[in-house]
Design a protein around this nucleic acid. Structure first.
Lengths: 404, 404
DNA sequence: ATGATTTAATTTGAAACTCAAAAAAAACAT
DNA sequence: ATGTTTTTTTTGAGTTTCAAATTAAATCAT
């Protein structure tokens, strides 16, 4: 057994309360004290006490009474909301050819964003740190402030990351392996940095701001070059022991199957990732050579049997992968999150339909599958969401010290 | 966000403490108060207070001072342990041809066990209830007591079970689908019944008494006729939204693959379950007909190429499935639990070795894979473990009412 | 033996929290 | 104006935890 975590020691209990109430306010957008009490089960008296603290700390603020609201008798409720000005947070996504950055306020509202091209996709540690700082400086400048104004930075990387230790086992952006990136960035930036695998960050964003707002157990799947997964269990990102779980893309779907960019065979990614499709389409010579997915799609639409067959297989493989996720997690929701949704063949009702033939059936509704089209800043926004959450919990923890 | 669970309200906090301390005592076997304080982070003062309550409630007892212990200075520590006599718990596993039952004390020590044959593997609800009662009566009689002496019963079923609602979507033992088995058994038995999928119960047993004692994040895999999985995350069984997650056996490992007993194709179970092996071995006529795995193994040992090939494929498929579990969960441990370990080809070092070729590699040690040979009563013991845990938590909750 | 030392367990009193109930505040209804 | 209704705040009591002091029970040193 050995349940983890201690009994809440003194001072600790309040911390929970503050965290919980901040969470409720954030999810609700704005909410009156009485409703916080109802939502959390905490007594109104305690809600008053805790919100008073948060107010005086400047983390939340009262909303101007809503005159358009339906007229009710009694003392009008005054809603509370997160105070945007409390903190500025940056989110960065390091991709192969760009670093995209977004800066938001504490509410999550975008204040500035910037896309900075990268000459080299993979570079040594010091250079990556420098580029990250440069991207931040650019974006801050656009917003009219400086790096020192940031309370925290979230950073998303493709690769194997141990978020807790801020340690990168391997990333496609880094020449070195096993890098203490947290340490390295701490030396270059004036504010705390929080990093994680990029798919986990998207899951975080869905939980704070997206389709997972009202839900504590769901799976997020992203497909671009590779296939990513984020697992949210009981409201927390599940990362595994070493921090490198949720490697859905390298889940094996075929014994001795197609070669994956990771060097192994039979990975799901090797069937549904974009490079896999192009490779497959171009392998049989004689046909036109496809250089982009778009041309492949077009060919399929025009009745090209080979193109169709390639897309068909990808779709079936993906449906099978999704079914396995359902069979293993039985989640409340599955969110297919995409930045540009180029994968029409994968993000489609047909996939969801096909998935159902592979899942174990019981007489209870299947998990809802939601397709969420974020737009270009999805990854950076995910990183910002993580930054916001971490800064929040850090601030809440500092309360105790501040009081002393 | 919407973190689940309320802020610990009054009276609730102590409940946590009691539960946590009981857990620590159970895991440790016997442990002195001072060490409980260290293990939990709770102050010695509070440990004294809580253990005093538990002592007077008869849930724990002091251990006679250990004279053989190494001599130390100072006041000798007096160890505490769970009081076996506090409760009697039964665990039942309904299998196809038998119901096996074990009755344990509150410590988990076996008091009696019984294997009752079943004429029909699948039967209507009332009959199953009657058989369960009969099995319990037999076993109680063997132990020299009656059903009324039991504080709780754990029950393991093959099939799709929602443990929380005590609801059976489908079970190979029941003719009906969607049965409120908890309700039905409550009418037939004088004590609370707790039921779950059998693999989950084995996971529970590993956590309480087995290889998962010191570990809060691990996966248990069982192979018999079918393939089962139990997921322990943060010390709790993960069951999914509808209670039917962890269906590892019906995870698809091959598009349009081998036919499974569930009616679908490509399930892992259809490659590694015992029926799958025999089917595969017997499909190519001309060879001797195998009626048991044993004869298949023998043939392979004697160099029969076909038999070897059948076992080889099963092993590779299983290794692949295991690798997928690692890729998704990155658990601290994987426990391969078996009752009779007839699956030498699967429960072997070779599988573990092969698995490594399919997992995503990082420079951190792989999850430990442990093979745990339980003996015949594994399933029933799992059910008993669940019963013990549920009775414990129920007793702890009743404390509050008792005090009032 | 006897007192010093050491470690474990218990007691005590203060501080932190939460909550129910009462009070206050802020609106509408008549 | 006065009453009603609903939200928020205040108040005071009751839990619970913990640090510090105390007591308990052993060994060690002489």
């Amino acid at each position: 057994m050995a349940r983890s975590g201690k009994l809440s020691s003194t001072g600790d209990q309040r911390e929970n309360g503050r965290q919980q109430i901040l969470d409720v306010i954030r999810t609700a957008g704005h909410i009156a004290r009485i409703d916080i009490a109802k939502a959390t089960g905490v007594s109104p008296a305690t809600v008053t006490a805790i919100t008073a603290e948060l107010l005086s700390a400047g983390l939340i603020e009262e909303v101007a009474p809503d005159t358009t609201s339906e007229i009710r008798r009694g003392r009008p409720r005054v809603a509370l909301k997160i105070r945007g000005a409390a903190h500025r947070i940056a989110g960065l996504k390091v991709a192969h050819h760009t670093i995209s950055t977004v800066i938001t306020d504490f509410v999550g509202k975008e204040l500035a964003s910037h896309e900075m091209p990268l000459i080299k996709g993979r570079m040594p540690l010091p250079e990556l740190c420098a580029q990250i700082r440069r991207a931040l400086e650019f974006t801050c400048q656009k917003g009219g402030f400086v790096i020192e104004d940031l309370s925290g930075v979230g950073l998303g990387l493709a690769g194997m990351v141990d978020a807790e230790r801020k340690f990168v086992y391997w990333s496609s952006s880094l020449e070195e392996r096993n890098v203490d990136l947290g340490q390295a960035l701490a030396e270059v930036l004036p504010c705390p940095v929080f990093l994680d695998n990029d798919a986990n960050l998207v899951a975080k964003a869905e939980h704070l701001f997206g389709e997972g707002r009202t839900c504590d157990n769901f799976i997020v799947i992203t497909i671009e070059h590779g296939v990513g997964m984020g697992i949210v269990i009981d409201g927390k990102i599940y990362r595994g022991k070493r921090g490198c779980g949720a490697e859905f893309g390298h889940t094996k779907v075929h014994l001795e199957g197609a070669l994956c960019q990771c060097g192994q065979r039979g990975c799901l990614e090797a069937y549904v990732g974009d490079y896999a499709l192009l490779r497959e389409a171009n392998i049989s010579s004689g046909n036109e050579r496809h250089t982009s997915l778009l041309s492949l799609f077009k060919a399929a639409e025009n009745g090209d049997a080979m193109a169709r067959s390639v897309l068909d297989r990808a779709r079936r493989m993906f449906a099978m992968g999704l079914a396995n996720v359902v069979n293993i997690f039985d989640p409340s929701k599955i969110i297919l999150a995409g930045a540009r949704m180029t994968f029409d063949h994968l993000y489609s009702d047909k996939v969801i339909e096909e998935m159902q033939q592979w899942v174990v059936h019981v007489d209870a509704p299947l998990p809802e599958v939601i397709i969420h089209d974020w737009g270009d800043l999805m990854w950076a926004n995910g990183a910002a969401a993580y930054g916001i959450e971490e800064v929040t919990s850090q601030t809440v923890k500092e309360f105790a010290n501040a009081a002393a």
